[in-house]
């Protein structure tokens, strides 16, 4: 058995794919599915650039074997919004100047997304803890934290809008 057939839901699309078992999830996403928004910064789970949401949980895709993701539901940055229709968190990152080199941005936005799903009104400490697995070398984090605060306001507004 060299190749393994796995099936997973990536960004709401069902993907069937053949891989060798020692393929990492990050390689499956980048090399096989062309989802290069997921970045590799260290390969050892230290930097968070490869963060994706798997079965509702934040994971470092460099530390998951692709077969471990068999049957999983995965959201990458490409699944969050498009250029014509940005997610409120993506908008907030742009408006707050939270994007510099941009290499941490996809992972950071997904971490923010997951944090706000779990806790729609985090305080500053909770925001810091929510993004504690994601390194940024450019911004000094302040603007990223501001962007997440702005997202909180935006998302709660759009929620109350929906309720009406």
């Amino acid at each position: 058995m060299t190749k393994l057939k796995i099936e997973l839901m990536v960004n709401r699309k069902k993907r069937k794919i053949e891989i060798t078992p020692s393929t990492r999830l990050i390689d499956l996403l980048r090399d096989d599915l062309q989802l290069t928004g997921t970045k590799e910064g260290c390969g050892k789970g230290e930097c968070g650039a490869c963060t994706v949401i798997m079965n509702g949980e934040l994971v470092a895709s460099c530390l998951v074997l692709a077969p471990q993701a068999d049957g999983a539901v995965i959201t990458t940055i490409e699944g969050l919004g498009s250029s014509d229709h940005l997610d409120p968190i993506q908008e907030a990152f742009i408006e707050s100047g939270a994007v510099q080199c941009g290499f941490c941005t996809p992972g950071m936005i997904l971490a923010a997304r997951r944090l706000l799903e779990e806790n729609p009104h985090p305080d500053e400490e909770e925001i810091k803890r929510g993004i504690s697995g994601n390194l940024c070398r450019c911004t000094g984090y302040q603007k990223i934290i501001e962007a997440i605060k702005l997202s909180i306001a935006r998302l709660s507004k759009s929620d109350s809008g929906k309720a009406k």
Partner: peptide, 16 residues
């Protein structure tokens, strides 16, 4: 910036 928040921006490693 739009490319960077949507994951479309191409860094050297993203070119195949």
């Amino acid at each position: 910036v739009q490319d960077k928040v949507t994951g479309k921006a191409l860094y050297p490693d993203d070119i195949y």
